[in-house]
Design a protein around this nucleic acid. Structure first.
Ligand SMILES: [Mn+2]
Ligand SMILES: [Mn+2]
Ligand SMILES: [Zn+2]
Ligand SMILES: [Zn+2]
Lengths: 124, 124
DNA sequence: GTTTTTAATTGAAATGATTACAAAGATAAT
DNA sequence: ATTATCTTTGTAATCATTTCAATTAAAAAC
């Protein structure tokens, strides 16, 4: 969480206990988490944490450019601390988001309306 | 709406008055509409139409592969009667979705967290 | 063509994510 | 220490979507 402190400053985000904890989680769990996943992960060790704070914090992080928000999962917003331009693959089976860094053009020959979606991919 | 009738049959969707009206609207208004936009467009000439029916109808259309659902707008689901693999550009200014058929790789050098998003694009 | 069965539509209520808001708590400035 | 500013918190409101049971329409059986 020392590192998170520094990391936040790079984006001119004033660090607070909650903000550092959230950023620490994001940096160490690159699972494109939902608000609820962040909240449930931190809640045990931070019992006073409010879900509203997680919403506020993520809004601020996005505003400051420290994270990007993904709309690939229509159920919940998902957040990515990796702000580089890269693709995402959403599996409706396990409801997880995977990165696509090296896109193969053939992947776009997949039929639509299947059990996955590909978003914001880079051309290769 | 005669054409819509035929069109639905191509996807083995049993045509009803409501389904044909919705499909007619989709075929003639390729604006990637939301549920509400569809409902508000048809409601005047079809006063008994229920929004639930629009939801049911779009679910069926997606299930049968007649339309694809886009998650690019985090506020509402958007539907596209063009089921070919093509890209979408969402402008947060006018809240409209634009097609991207010929993607230029340079477009991906745009910074993230700006006032737009690019989804599900084809490689060029 | 009337009865019976099945499918589609409807409106109201429930759900679930997100947002708004106002009070309480913490930090910074004077 | 006092005051002002920023952050956190919990509750309530909002809004899209889903669930559900009742009504209506269409299809099948007789
Ligand atoms: Mn990612
Ligand atoms: Mn389109
Ligand atoms: Zn999976
Ligand atoms: Zn625009």
């Amino acid at each position: 969480m020392l590192e998170s402190h520094q990391y936040l400053r790079q984006f001119s985000i004033k660090p607070s206990v909650q903000r550092s904890a959230v950023m620490h989680f994001l940096l160490n769990n690159r699972i494109h988490p939902t608000i609820d996943e962040i909240f449930m992960a931190l809640s045990p060790t931070m019992p006073t944490l409010s879900k509203t704070t997680v919403y506020n914090t993520m809004d601020l992080f996005v505003e400051k450019g420290a994270v990007q928000v993904l709309a690939i999962d229509e159920k919940n917003a998902r957040y990515d601390v990796d702000i580089s331009a890269h693709g995402h693959f959403f599996c409706k089976g396990c409801a997880k988001v995977y990165d696509i860094f090296d896109l193969k053009p053939e992947m776009f020959q997949l039929p639509v309306n299947e059990k996955f979606k590909i978003h914001a991919v880079e051309s290769s």
